[in-house]
Design a protein around this nucleic acid. Structure first.
Lengths: 240, 240
DNA sequence: ATTGACAACATGTATAGACAAGTATAATAT
DNA sequence: ATATTATACTTGTCTATACATGTTGTCAAT
């Protein structure tokens, strides 16, 4: 269920996207938004907090909330976003080729160096090659852990695994830890990505549900010349 | 000035760091924290929101706030954190060698392909080589834009530019957009980083103040074999 | 022993109100 | 004209309250 502040945030985000509120201008003040949406100021402020976190606006005390212009530098791809979602959002008309789809009684070898803590976990191994404009771009290796994900139809891998998990199974994907490195890859991967050298960008991530259950391990091998990670970050003032 | 909720967040974060609250356990409930800190529940909740965003805890409805165990996989280096801060936090006893420190009337050539919008901006050009355990690791190229940063002493570059800006000049560093790619580098950089090939990881970022003034451009060239970017991300549900 | 209802806890969401502090404008005094 | 003051805005912070909803254990009925 969407909360009132989620709906307001969604509506404002869409208005910013469609340039009803333009970069460099202020959106209506919190009091005006309060009247507009018929809600309390705190509720409006919770919506604005979301937009601030996303990097859509910057709040300036005494003045208002300024719309930032980030579209110039393309859009954040950090966070947790599935390939299918990116494909749709960025309209990159990509093709997906399923290379592997198998159930395993333990973690496949290739995952071991990165996720040794799951050595003996059952799961489903999915390998998919992402092809953009006839160019192999990314090799996605997923391992869906068996508890909590028992069975998954092959059709879900063809479309979107995340959509299947969230819409069909009703699971709530919540957070992830990611690690980006550059590694040497074997002949097999080198051939798949049509590389003329042995280096690839590797994004390794552990993905978790709302109840902190780990449900997926991912290794994504990217062509270095195509790889681009865009991020928006705010300075945090908590010192550990 | 630090707000009440900031102080609570800071205190809780420190307790988590020092294992007073351990991973897998729940921190005290919001009502207990309310009593503990003598504040309202909303104030406590604002503190918990910060810890949630940082990935220190996961709130579970009906149960409580669980401490997550992220230290196992080393700690998020996304966000905006200066090298000096990282050096201190991670205790990596790094050495910094200043290669360039000059005022410029326009953007130096090397920045142009990445920040063409600042072509004619005055500023200070700082190049620093980061050496970790006698191994050149990162080449940091900064360009501090003249408005808003007029003069900067060379001593600041030797210690920490961010500390100088925030503490001495009283500027508020607020947010940044970052872009991570892999690029071919020229002989000069190749030699500095002691690379036996031509690929380096490039982190390009635009850094902004609280009033949305852009104040710094950064190009960081990393040795691919040493590069590691760790991130914590939460799934966002706003669709653009 | 199993089930079901209930109570006591947890977090999630929304509201209303108050005051602080930064910004900009207009009126005022010099 | 210039500087000062008042004011009406803005966002920032905190409080108190209410109700919704999810979780867990207890106690009673079956």
């Amino acid at each position: 269920m969407q909360s009132k502040s989620d709906i307001i945030a969604q509506d404002l985000a869409s208005k910013i996207k469609h340039q009803l509120y333009k970069p460099g201008n202020y959106i209506p003040s919190e009091n005006q938004l309060t009247a507009l949406y018929g809600s309390s100021r705190e509720t409006v402020r919770r919506a604005l907090d979301q937009l601030t976190e996303l990097g859509l606006i910057q709040k300036i005390k005494g003045k208002g909330s300024l719309v930032l212009n980030l579209e110039r530098y393309s859009f954040p791809i950090s966070g947790i976003t599935s390939f299918a979602e990116l494909n749709k959002d960025l309209d990159m008309r990509a093709e997906t080729k399923i290379l592997t789809f198998e159930k395993c009684s333990q973690l496949p070898e290739k995952f071991l160096p990165y996720f040794s803590e799951e050595k003996d976990s059952k799961g489903t191994h999915v390998e998919r090659l992402r092809i953009i404009q006839d160019q192999p771009d990314v090799l996605d290796c997923d391992y869906l852990l068996n508890p909590p994900i028992a069975d998954i139809p092959k059709s879900a891998a063809e479309k979107s695994i995340y959509q299947y998990l969230e819409n069909d199974l009703g699971l709530s994907i919540s957070y992830a830890t990611k690690e980006i490195t550059v590694t040497k890859v074997d002949d097999h991967i080198q051939k798949l990505l049509q590389l003329d050298h042995e280096l690839a960008v590797l994004v390794a991530s552990r993905n978790y549900l709302e109840d902190t259950t780990k449900f997926e391990l991912t290794l994504s091998y990217h062509r270095p010349d195509k790889f681009k990670f865009v991020d928006f970050a705010r300075r945090k003032h908590i010192k550990l």
